[in-house]
Design a protein around this nucleic acid. Structure first.
Lengths: 231, 231
DNA sequence: TGCGGCCATTCTGCATACAGTGCACAAAAC
DNA sequence: GTTTTGTGCACTGTATGCAGAATGGCCGCA
C-alpha cells in the first residue's frame, strides 16, 4: 500500500501533523484574543468587563466569552468578583515582584535542564534568535527587540522539555508582558540587558547550566529593577 | 437606635462578620467538588466526562459545569478535546517527574523566602504542624500523616508571602495528590521521609534558608523515587 | 468472511431566554 | 441637611434549546 496511512513514510515526506487543519474552538480563539487584548493594554486594569458589550464586540455570544473569562482568571489576568463578573486584574508592584521571583526560579530551572537535555540543533536555533536580537539592538528597534527577547526566553524554556514548566512560564510571561510594555528603559540599562543576553548565549553554547542560571537570575533582577523605576 | 446596624455594638456581642452567610458561587463549588473527585480518584484518568450525566449527579445544569471544566483544564487536571469534551487527565511517569521537578523548584524558593520573611509566630505554627506529623508517624496512621504532610508543605509556601508562588504550588500539589494516593511506601522509605522532615523543621527553626532548600530538594527526589517504584 | 460505506444516535458547542442580585438614584422621614 | 429606605435598571448567573460533529453499529458487497 502506498496510502497516506502507511507506517513507512516516504523519505523526504513531511510529518503528517503538518497537514492537520487548524481547528481551534471558538472558546480557544476567544481566550487568545482576550489575552492579547489584556496584555496589549486594550482592556485597562481595574476595568469591569461587560459581557454583552464585549461579546458583541467580538461577535460571540456570552457563553463562550464567559468560559474564556474563567480560563483567563485561572491565568491570573482577570479576577472574578461574585455577581459582578470579571475585572481586568491590576498588578501592584508587589504582585509584579512576586511573579518575577517565580519567573526567575522557573527560568533558572529551565536553563539548567536545557543545557542538560537539549539537542545541538535546538541550541543552534536559540543562538540564531540571539543573532536576531543583536541586530534588533544594533538597529535600535525596541518593539522587535522586545519580541525577540521574549522569544528567546520562551525558547530556552522549551528546550527544557518540560510541558508543566513551559505552561507556568507562559502564564507568568503573559502577566509580565502586560507590564513590560510600560517601561521604556534608558540606553545604559538596555546595553546591560543586551550584555547579559550575550552571556546567556555563551553559557548555553557551552552547555554550562550553572552559569546560564546565574546570568538568568541577574537578568531578571535587572528587569525588576527597570520596572521598579518605571512605576 | 439599638439596631443591629449600630456602629457601637453591645459589649459581649459577637462581631457581625460571624453571622455572614457563606455564599460561594455555584461555579466555585462545582470546581472544588470536581477537583476533589479527580484527586481522590472518583473520576478515573482517561475517562471521558459526560456533561449531562455529571451535571445531573451534581444537581447542576451544564453551563456552570462546563465553566468549571474550563477552570480545571487550566489547572491541568482535565484535558479538553475539541468536540469530545473533557477527559480526566492521565499522567505518564514523565509528566509526574516534570511536575515534581517544578514543584521542587517552587518549594525551594518558598523555603528560602520563608526563612527570610516569616514571623516567629508563623514559624511556630509550622513547627506545631511538624509535631503533629511526628505523632501521626509514631501512630502509624498513613492517611492523617499524608494530610499533615501536605499541610506542612503548603504552610511553608504560605510563609513565603507570595500569592503567585502559592497558587502555582497549589496547582502542582493537586496534580501530585492524585498520584501519591497510589503508593504505599515501605517502612524504611517512610522513616527516611520523616527524617527529612525533622531536618526541614530544624532548618526552618534556625531560619537557614539554604539548608531548608537543600533538604526540600532531597525530600522531593525521594518522593519521586517512591512514585517511580509504585508505577 | 472481511471490508467499506451509510445511517442513526449521542454528545458537545454555541446561542438564547429567564431569574435573581446588586447598585444607583431618588424620595421621604427625622 | 442628613440619613435611610424604597424602587427601577442593568448586569450577572443559570437553565434550556438547537444545530453540527463524531462515533459506533449495521447492512451490503466483494
Amino acid at each position: 500500500m502506498t496510502s497516506i496511512a502507511s507506517t513507512e513514510p516516504q523519505a523526504g515526506a513531511a510529518p503528517l501533523e503538518n497537514f492537520a487543519i487548524p481547528r481551534q474552538s471558538l472558546h480557544g480563539q476567544v481566550v487568545t484574543r482576550l489575552r492579547d487584548m489584556v496584555t496589549e493594554g486594550h482592556l485597562a486594569p481595574g476595568q469591569r468587563i461587560n459581557e454583552v458589550a464585549l461579546g458583541q464586540a467580538l461577535g460571540v455570544s456570552r457563553t463562550p466569552l464567559r468560559e474564556a473569562l474563567k480560563t483567563l482568571a485561572g491565568e491570573g489576568l482577570v479576577e472574578l468578583v461574585p455577581t459582578r463578573g470579571a475585572v481586568v486584574r491590576s498588578f501592584s508592584l508587589k504582585d509584579i515582584a512576586d511573579s518575577m521571583e517565580v519567573l526567575k526560579a522557573l527560568e533558572q530551572l529551565a536553563g539548567r535542564r536545557a543545557c542538560a537535555v537539549a539537542t545541538e540543533a535546538e541550541i543552534a536555533h536559540v543562538l540564531a534568535l540571539h543573532e536576531e536580537l543583536r541586530e534588533r539592538y544594533a538597529a535600535g528597534d525596541r518593539l522587535p527587540y522586545f519580541k525577540t527577547n521574549q522569544a528567546i526566553h520562551s525558547a530556552i524554556v522549551t528546550l527544557a522539555d518540560n510541558p508543566t514548566l513551559l505552561r507556568m512560564h507562559e502564564i507568568l510571561q503573559a502577566q509580565m508582558k502586560r507590564i513590560r510594555f510600560i517601561g521604556h528603559e534608558g540606553v545604559e540599562k538596555w546595553a546591560a540587558a543586551m550584555a547579559e543576553h550575550e552571556e546567556m548565549a555563551a553559557a548555553l553554547a557551552r552547555r554550562d547550566g550553572e552559569a546560564l542560571a546565574e546570568v538568568i537570575g541577574r537578568h531578571h533582577d535587572l528587569g525588576l529593577e527597570r520596572i521598579r523605576e518605571a512605576y
